[in-house]
């Protein structure tokens, strides 16, 4: 019962996050990029602020609400793009690895080990230092790390499905490898991959925020929850709201994602519990 309530609360929170991200521009009054220098570091409504800036403003006088909403939009975009790229590359490599087996499997799995041992933050700092912060870089770095999860999962699942009799039957009917993979294997490993993707939303948001916090993520002046936390760092005693609100947003969304992801894991494939990141 309590589990159900938490699940639906988390699901509701996520729906809100997505909706806000999608409708962003229609929800906000102020420009998230340009502030008014006269309204620098305005406190939120209940700490002596005004209706004009209900969550206050940052050190350049930019509206916190506008920046949070736009930040959500950027976070979601990064999530979708990263999961699409990492998911398709990882699934392709993992499925191939499991299906073909042999030396190809060994080579690809060493590649996965390599990806898993990449120091994300160092890599990001390096790329950032070489080519400056950009949206492309952040997607590249996160994808480089995350594809391996899909590769592992889809390889394991492919090995399982490959042993099912219907795959042998398809082979005895003379079906080609591509037909077997697309008709018999992918549809049957999809549920587990969806679980991985769901759980990864949280990881992507945290990574994006961390990289932006370190200054190698979303390039300024674009708002990202991570860079907003970083911005507010020096004023945390006087203007706590600048760091606190994006921090809370990250916490809530990531928690909601994990609750939804865990519940889905239990429902779709209880055997996988605890095997995903």
């Amino acid at each position: 019962m309590i589990q159900k309530v938490t699940f639906y609360a988390a699901l509701g929170l996520l729906a809100m996050f997505v909706l806000v991200a999608l409708l962003g521009p229609y929800l906000i009054e102020h420009d998230p990029l340009r502030g008014s220098l006269r309204a620098r570091l305005e406190p939120p409504l209940w700490a002596g602020g005004t209706m004009e800036y209900p969550l206050g403003t940052d050190r350049l006088g930019r509206d916190m609400v506008a920046r949070m909403v736009t930040g959500a939009r950027i976070s979601l975009t990064v999530c979708v793009v990263v999961i699409a790229i990492a998911g398709s590359i990882g699934t392709a490599i993992g499925t191939l690895s499991g299906y073909v087996g042999g030396w190809l499997d060994r080579v690809l799995m060493r590649l996965v080990d390599l990806a898993l041992s990449l120091p994300v933050i160092l890599l990001a700092l390096l790329i950032g230092a070489v080519s400056g912060p950009s949206f492309g870089n952040i997607v590249l770095v996160i994808s480089l790390v995350l594809w391996s999860q899909y590769a592992r999962m889809s390889r394991g699942e492919t090995l399982r499905v490959k042993n099912e009799d219907y795959v042998d039957l398809a082979r005895t009917s003379g079906l080609g490898h591509a037909a077997i993979i697309f008709r018999h294997i992918l549809p049957n490993i999809a549920p587990s991959l969806i679980v991985v993707a769901t759980l990864q939303v949280g990881v992507v948001i945290v990574l994006e925020a961390s990289l932006s916090f370190l200054g190698v993520g979303v390039p300024p002046p674009n708002p990202s929850w991570g860079s907003m936390v970083a911005d507010g760092r020096s004023y945390v005693v006087t203007a706590w709201w600048v760091s606190l609100f994006p921090g809370i947003a990250i916490l809530l969304v990531v928690m909601a994602v994990n609750i939804v992801g865990d519940t889905l894991t239990d429902r779709i494939n209880p055997a996988l519990r605890g095997r995903t990141a």
Partner: peptide, 10 residues
Amino acid sequence: FQNPYSSLNP
């Protein structure tokens, strides 16, 4: 085959 749970793609 023996096992009809494995021989039909769900």
